[in-house]
């Protein structure tokens, strides 16, 4: 079934939801409608999208996005792709765990790496990175640490554990050079 047909169907079943076709996928414009849309797709007698095969996130700089791939095992339909876009500064999307149990870990993963909050998730915490990790490493503005030079924390830790630190490294860590101009790196030619 084409995305356009599904959109027409949803327009009939969930009239309140605004849906746009982006390429081959359905963009649910208001995240609050997501629950109703997914429930309608799941219970529709022609579609019966009973399987959430993947839930991922991506960062489009202006917004964050979650992408859902739905299949029907019964009707052999799929994938039906849903997209939800949220603002970077307050990314909140309703959780699908109540509808698809398999969403639990995938939502935790998307939360861990992109910092999208899935509201209603029973246990939303980091899954890959450890507790106490700061930031969301898959976001485009995440800056990795420089793993070739020691920082102040490292020096303190090494001193506490009785490891000898060369003077040069100690100097560098305690008087770090001024950070370079914070220009975005030129993206590689695609």
């Amino acid at each position: 079934m084409k995305a356009e047909d599904i959109r027409a169907k949803l327009e009939k079943n969930v009239p309140s939801a605004k849906i746009k076709v982006v390429r081959d996928s359905l963009l649910v414009e208001n995240p609050a409608d997501l629950h109703n849309v997914v429930l309608a797709l799941k219970s529709d007698s022609d579609l019966r999208l009973d399987y959430l095969s993947s839930l991922t996130a991506s960062d489009f700089v202006d917004y964050l996005e979650t992408v859902y791939h739905l299949y029907s095992i019964d009707k052999r339909i799929g994938p039906v792709v849903l997209r939800v876009r949220v603002k970077r500064d307050n990314p909140k999307i309703p959780s699908l765990v109540a509808i698809y149990r398999g969403a639990e870990f995938q939502e935790r993963e998307a939360y861990d790496t992109y910092g999208i909050t899935y509201e209603g998730h029973p246990d939303l915490r980091r899954i890959f990175m450890w507790e106490g990790f700061e930031g969301f490493p898959m976001r485009k503005d995440y800056e990795q640490e420089d793993s070739e030079t020691l920082d102040k924390d490292d020096i303190e830790w090494l001193d506490r554990n009785g490891v000898k630190v060369p003077d040069e490294m100690r100097q560098k860590a305690l008087n770090p050079p001024a950070p370079a101009e914070d220009k975005p790196a030129t993206p590689p030619a695609s």
Partner: peptide, 26 residues
């Protein structure tokens, strides 16, 4: 060997200078 800890951005320390040091030439 001292066991590194998980810090807010990665491992603390990033390496053990008694065992390994960055190369002079990258």
């Amino acid at each position: 060997f001292p066991i590194p800890e998980l810090g807010p951005r990665g491992l603390v320390p990033k390496f053990n200078p008694e065992v390994w040091q960055p190369r002079e030439v990258d």
